[in-house]
Computed example of a mutant assay.
Amino acid sequence: MPRVFTTPPPLEPGSRVAIVAPSRPIDESMRDRACSRLRETFDLDPVVFETARSDWEWLKDNPQARAQDIMDAFEDSTIDGVVAVTGGDDQIRVLKHLDPDRLAASPTRFYGFSDNDNLRLYLWNHGIVSYGATLHPTLTVDPEIHPYVERYLRRAFFEQSLGVVDPTDEWTDEWFDFDTEEPREWHDNPGRTWHGDERVTGRLWGGNFSIVKWHLQTDRYLPSADELDGTILALETSEDVPVPREVKYTLRSMGERGLLERFDGLLMGRPRTFSPELEWEPPEDYGERLREEVVTVLDEYNPDVTAVFDVEFGHADPNVPLPLGATATLDPTEAAIRFE
């Protein structure tokens, strides 16, 4: 039997939303900036939970406390949504401390991405749809919230589904300078690239490439192969900016395990190509090289798949709060992407 999915009820103006730190915390000034935008732009009432007030050294040593905050937020009947403050690199350590029955009994809209895709894939396993947004950077960068981000975040907060997601007019992967508040440099959007010509519909599974790779490596939180039949794989490469052949190697391994052939579609987020801590310099055509490597693997293991590249989710800006577990439709004839 296919897994039954629940989309938690939409928020309403005035809804209380829990602010938690399942990964790392952020500076109080950033947290206050984001919470102000929740109040002023979206008329939501942020409630800061204990982990979001804690420092990283304590959170690092207490993954069980991070899990407890998540469960408490889900079970609080006065809370309508749960928002992660930011990402990190260790949330997989939190998952073993979660009680899936407690989460499934109180399905609540969860917002997070990057390291939070650990929790989102966990929620997927228990039939709960979740959304790809965090306090930082979603609600902190730029002097004002980008209109494209506001449009789709508003849908993720207040509507049953995102509906059709149109391409953005502009994009950037420039780091935002909070000291100067200077506007970032934006580039014209060259558009999405489609591979394959068949319209496909399926549940969305995946997220951050690094997190998907961790789940493949640990093999503790993967759905069964049969549950992935007919689904759509979503991948974005984050600020890690992996060498394209590393993405190819992981997808090839999925092919050898008989997993890659299960997907009817693939969504690839527009790749970020810059990070201050990056240890190598990506070429100007990084996105093209990444796409070529991915297509090579698809052609070998899943030649009939429909794929679309440079979609607006992940770590390049602006982006949409990708709903893992929702039903996605990829229509290459209309060049359209829809989430229900």
Rank of each mutant, 00 (worst) to 15 (best):
Pro2Lys: 14
Leu11Tyr: 00
Glu12Ala: 13
Gly14His: 04
Val17Leu: 04
Ile19Gly: 03
Ile19Leu: 05
Val20Asp: 05
Ala21Leu: 04
Ile26Gly: 04
Asp27Tyr: 14
Ser29Tyr: 14
Ala34Asn: 03
Ser36Met: 05
Glu40Phe: 00
Asp43Val: 05
Leu44Glu: 01
Gln64Leu: 11
Ala67Asn: 02
Ala73Thr: 05
Val83Pro: 00
Ala84Ile: 03
Gly87Thr: 03
Gly88Gln: 02
His97Cys: 08
Pro100Phe: 05
Leu121Asp: 04
Leu123Asn: 10
His126Ile: 15
Gly127Phe: 12
Val129Leu: 10
Ser130Trp: 05
Ala133Asn: 09
Thr134Lys: 12
Pro143Arg: 15
Tyr148Ile: 12
Glu150His: 07
Ser161Ala: 15
Leu162Cys: 09
Leu162Lys: 07
Val164Leu: 04
Val164Cys: 08
Val165Glu: 00
Asp169Ser: 12
Glu170Arg: 15
Trp175Arg: 15
Asp177Cys: 10
Arg184Gln: 09
Trp186Lys: 07
Asp188Gln: 12
Glu198Tyr: 05
Leu204Lys: 05
Ile211Lys: 02
Asp226Ala: 14
Thr231Asp: 11
Glu236Arg: 09
Glu239Trp: 14
Glu239Val: 14
Pro242Arg: 09
Val243His: 14
Thr250Cys: 09
Gly255Pro: 09
Glu261Gln: 11
Arg270Glu: 02
Pro271Arg: 03
Arg272Ile: 09
Thr273Asp: 14
Thr273His: 08
Thr273Leu: 11
Asp285Phe: 04
Leu290Phe: 08
Val294Gln: 03
Val295Pro: 06
Asn302Asp: 03
Thr306Lys: 02
Val308Tyr: 00
Val308Pro: 00
Phe309Gln: 02
Asp310Gln: 04
His315Leu: 14
Asn319Tyr: 15
Leu324Arg: 10
Gly325Met: 07
Thr327Met: 11
Pro332Gly: 00
